[in-house]
């Protein structure tokens, strides 16, 4: 695992990806700090973090696109399969290398509140708490990016797909609010979500019965719940999406709440994404 980690880290720093990612994040941090804190005189560094979180739409694909897709393109994945290491350790090594790169701008940004405190009162606790949330958010998004890289054959496709997924995650809440608040609309939207899930299950497992089961149980369950307590469905879709949204969790940190459930949520996102990455890699042995 350490061997893979060292190799990945070296690769990302001999190539452009890591530098571009770090520079990109820092440039935006600089611009927003300038704008909010220095020009307008807000003492809250966390606003900077909130505004700049949109850059992950581009920064994460840059960082993660090549990680596994490139191995496949240059046939080095054969080496990984032949190594006497489990796939879990290889994926963990890769993820830790990405995480190290992700940590660099977060650590550097940790100095900003100190600099700002020269010019006025800064609430360090909220600033650094928000920064911790920022790091967790980027870690979770990077894990999702790694999974997407494992799913695709080349890095351009990985980057494109990753961008789309990041965008969906970012705008998930706004999109969900387009669904009307009535119970019936919520039911329809949730059923649609279940069907999407079933399609994904079909794509991943290539097993139609399983996908059918997911769809049937999901839709049946929803319908049953709806018949029992329809009034509970009012605005439900919106609430579900909000509690699932990665970015929404991060905004809690911005508000100055160091949300432990949020931490747990990010950690579970990472765990699930890495687990699926390992499974995707293992699955390729079979095809």
């Amino acid at each position: 695992m350490i061997a893979v980690y060292k190799k990945e880290l070296r690769t990302s720093f001999t190539g452009m990806a890591a530098y571009v990612f770090i520079a990109f994040v820092l440039v935006f941090a600089g611009i927003y700090t300038m704008l909010y804190n220095l020009s307008n005189g807000y003492p809250n560094f966390e606003y900077v973090l909130q505004s700049m979180s949109i850059i992950f739409l581009i920064a994460i694909p840059i960082l993660t696109m090549r990680s596994i897709a490139e191995e496949r393109r240059q046939y080095t994945d054969q080496l990984l399969y032949a190594l006497p290491l489990g796939m879990t350790r290889i994926v963990l090594g890769k993820y830790l290398a990405i995480l190290t790169v992700v940590a660099v701008p977060s650590l550097l940004m940790g100095c900003y509140p100190l600099l700002l405190s020269q010019y006025g009162e800064v609430s360090f606790a909220t600033a650094w708490g928000a920064l911790a949330g920022f790091f967790l958010l980027s870690a979770a998004l990077a894990a999702i990016g790694l999974l997407i890289s494992a799913l695709t054959e080349n890095q351009a496709v990985a980057a494109g797909l990753c961008f789309v997924v990041m965008m969906l995650l970012y705008f998930m809440n706004n999109l969900a609010s387009f669904v009307s608040d009535t119970a019936a609309a919520s039911l329809a939207a949730l059923m649609l979500a279940v069907l999407v899930l079933a399609v994904l299950a079909r794509m991943f497992t290539r097993s139609t019965p399983l996908a059918g089961l997911v769809a049937a149980v999901g839709c049946g369950g929803l319908l049953a719940c709806y018949l029992v307590a329809a009034e509970r469905f009012e605005g439900l879709f919106d609430r579900v999406m909000e509690s699932l949204s990665v970015f929404e969790r991060f905004y809690t940190f911005i508000d100055g709440v160091f949300d432990l459930t949020g931490v747990l949520y990010f950690l579970s996102i990472i765990a699930v994404a890495l687990f699926l990455t390992v499974q995707t890699m293992e699955k390729r042995r079979w095809s």
Partner: peptide, 13 residues
């Protein structure tokens, strides 16, 4: 020790 059909080497190393 296995050498697949395409040598699995990293071009940037």
């Amino acid at each position: 020790g296995y050498l697949p059909e395409m040598p699995p080497v990293y071009p940037e190393m």
